[in-house]
Amino acid sequence: MSKRARALAIWRETGRRLGVTEYSGGGFGDYSGPDTEDYMKPKNLYDAAALATGIGFTAVSGASNIIGMAQSGKWDLSKMVPSFDTGNNDIPGLSQAFDQMTQQLEEITETLQKGGMIQVDIDVDSNGVPTVSFTKAGLA
Rank of each mutant, 00 (worst) to 15 (best):
126 S>K: 11
44 N>K: 00
17 R>D: 09
98 F>M: 06
107 E>V: 04
74 K>R: 13
90 D>W: 00
82 P>A: 07
84 F>P: 01
120 V>S: 00
72 S>M: 08
30 D>G: 07
56 G>Q: 03
19 G>C: 01
15 G>H: 13
26 G>Y: 03
29 G>T: 03
75 W>L: 13
35 D>K: 11
98 F>E: 06
50 A>S: 03
41 K>C: 04
93 G>R: 12
22 E>Y: 04
100 Q>L: 09
22 E>F: 11
35 D>G: 05
104 Q>T: 04
72 S>W: 13
79 K>A: 07
98 F>L: 11
65 N>H: 03
101 M>A: 06
101 M>P: 02
120 V>H: 11
116 G>V: 02
111 T>V: 04
93 G>D: 12
119 Q>N: 08
58 T>K: 01
67 I>N: 00
59 A>K: 08
82 P>Q: 14
16 R>C: 04
89 N>A: 10
48 A>Q: 04
34 P>Y: 13
42 P>H: 05
40 M>L: 14
89 N>R: 10
73 G>A: 06
100 Q>A: 04
38 D>P: 03
69 M>L: 11
55 I>V: 12
32 S>K: 15
130 P>C: 08
115 G>V: 14
119 Q>K: 14
127 N>T: 09
102 T>A: 15
123 D>L: 13
44 N>L: 02
127 N>M: 10
